[in-house]
């Protein structure tokens, strides 16, 4: 099991380095998604399978898709001439190899691990849920208020403001 931890750690570090040193934002975002998947493998190895699923679903699934949408909205005019370079093999072969390494790691660890028994080591989602809604109930409510503020703030900041001009001041 230890070697899987080191493999996933190396993949995470390498893909993070590639993400923060890239020129193109989309390529860096793909490397960042790969880094998050590697950290998710580490969460699984640390006997936190619920958090590993959340990492894939929310981080790599929702937040990074938001990033990619905004990047595509912004660069749609700037990147037009370099679109042909995206399809070269050197742009996607390294992330593919790293992703394949991650996949092999996951498969091997699933094969070698003992059948999931009521193990005292693993922290099951039931315990997390009970703790979340009993001990940390106030934190959940505060997080709900924060999410509400986030929704309102993103709507307010993201809306395009119409420029209001009095009809006497219009030039045409």
């Amino acid at each position: 099991m230890n070697v899987f931890f080191y493999i996933a750690a190396i993949v995470a570090i390498v893909s993070t380095i590639m993400a923060i040193s890239g020129k193109n934002a989309i390529h860096s975002l793909l490397y960042l998604i790969l880094s998050l998947l590697a950290v998710s493998v580490i969460f699984y190895l640390l006997s936190a399978p619920f958090i590993a699923a959340l990492e894939v679903i929310i981080y790599a699934g929702a937040i990074m898709v938001l990033f990619i949408f905004v990047t595509m909205m912004l660069n749609i005019g700037l990147e037009r001439e370099s679109e042909n370079k995206w399809l070269k093999p050197r742009m996607w072969i390294v992330p593919s190899i790293l992703a394949v390494i991650l996949l092999v790691t996951l498969i091997m660890s699933l094969k070698n691990v003992a059948p999931v028994s009521p193990d005292k080591e693993a922290i099951l989602p039931k315990q997390v849920g009970i703790s979340l809604f009993s001990t940390y109930l106030l934190g959940v409510e505060i997080a709900a208020i924060l999410l509400m503020a986030g929704v309102i703030g993103a709507y307010h900041l993201g809306s395009q403001k119409k420029k209001v001009i009095h009809r006497f001041l219009k030039t045409n």
Binding site: I63, L66, F67, L147, G153, A154
Partner: peptide, 11 residues
């Protein structure tokens, strides 16, 4: 917290 931060920052 991260979800809120990302949405506000991207806006």
């Amino acid at each position: 917290v991260t979800a809120v931060e990302v949405s506000i920052a991207l806006a």
